[in-house]
Simulated scan of single mutants.
Amino acid sequence: MIWVLRRWVIAPVVVALAGLVWFTLPIWLIGAAAVSPIVPGRLRPLRVMWVAIVYLTCEALLLVVMLGLWIASGFGWRLRTPYFEGIHYDLVQGTMWVFFREARRVLRLRIESEGPTPAAYPGRPIVVCCRHAGPGDSFVLIHTLMAWYDREPRVVLKDTLAWDPMIDVVLNRIPARFITPNPATGADLEAQIAELASGLDENDAFVIFPEGGNFTPRRRQRAIDRLRRLGMERMAQRAEQMTHVLAPRPGGLLAALDAAPGADVVMVAHTGLDHLVSVGDIWRELPMDKRIVMRWWQVPHDEIPVGREERIDWLFTWWERIDTWIDENRPVDLPTGRS
């Protein structure tokens, strides 16, 4: 019954709130302008408020459009057909293009990609493994995959993100999975991941975050302690040497690789959001005036180890490489200037 609350109560509230915000926009602008001189950062309240309004507006408009698509599909009868799935992917890509265009302009946020170009993956499905750190890194990754790599992502996300009605509705209409971290039955979780990764074609990208959560020092230590409880002392010692990432949990990735044996693997690291841990961090750093760098490495499927233990060691080796890259590419502020 929780989905009824999200879609029939929270979603209409979001749409109504967006309308109310635009109706009362002059009041919000005057209030934000009044407090800007006493808040650190150049016009911080105005810039943050505008990005929040853009996101709320995108969410409300997308919810209304998706309601229309639900009706047009025969009240949900044909929503899972390739035609309507394609429409939803186009909607997501268009919405993210609008939002990131405004976020880059207003927050002076520069996103750069390094590594193989889209031409490096012709006609080949990919499994994308990304480190998880900072708010919104999954959105940046999906936006890059769709806009630059022209891929249709299949995403594994935490179930808490389903409380955002836009995310809830759209990801229940395209191949995706909301999962509960640390479930009682890990085998069932791996089975869900394997099902989602099955049948990838040449324009698909299966996306997974092997760490299972955003990096924080406390989570890093918990991951190390967990390895020791499981009797994996060698892996725990390797995890202690990695200071910028969590020890990866290999189960989900191994299930995906077994379900998509012909896929290449793409490892992704990024810097620029990793130092944002608490709500206070996020507020102090906004407007960001930052450069986010995403580094991509392609691993052809014939270079991926076959055995389970060999694959776990291979994943840890890659995570050590990512940790080193992050240490060598710490985020820097952009030069002060006009937005």
Rank of each mutant, 00 (worst) to 15 (best):
M1Q: 12
I2P: 00
V9C: 05
A11C: 05
I27T: 12
A33S: 14
V35Y: 03
R42I: 05
R44Q: 14
R44E: 10
L46N: 12
V54H: 02
A60I: 02
V64P: 07
V65N: 03
W70D: 10
A72F: 13
S73D: 15
F75W: 14
R78A: 15
P82W: 11
E85V: 06
I87P: 02
Y89N: 08
Q93F: 01
E102I: 07
E112W: 02
S113P: 00
P116I: 11
T117V: 12
P118A: 04
P118H: 02
P122R: 13
G123D: 15
I126T: 07
G134K: 02
D137V: 06
D137H: 07
V140M: 08
R151I: 01
I167S: 01
V170E: 09
L171Y: 14
A176Q: 10
P181Y: 02
P183C: 10
T185Y: 06
A187Q: 14
A187N: 11
D188N: 13
A191D: 14
A191C: 09
Q192T: 07
I193H: 01
A197I: 01
E202L: 01
G212F: 04
N214I: 00
F215Y: 15
R218D: 11
R219L: 12
A223G: 13
I224F: 07
D225A: 15
R226I: 01
G231W: 08
E233V: 13
A236R: 08
Q237M: 05
Q237L: 06
V245C: 10
P248S: 04
R249E: 05
R249Q: 11
P250A: 15
P250R: 02
L254G: 01
L254W: 00
L257Q: 04
A260N: 05
P261V: 13
G262E: 15
G262P: 06
V265D: 01
V265T: 08
V266E: 03
M267D: 04
V268I: 08
H270M: 14
T271Y: 09
G272C: 11
H275I: 06
G280Y: 00
R284F: 12
R284N: 11
E285D: 12
K290T: 11
G307Q: 12
W314N: 02
W314T: 05
R321N: 03
R321L: 04
W325K: 08
I326K: 02
I326R: 06
D327I: 00
E328P: 02
G337W: 00
R338S: 12
S339N: 03
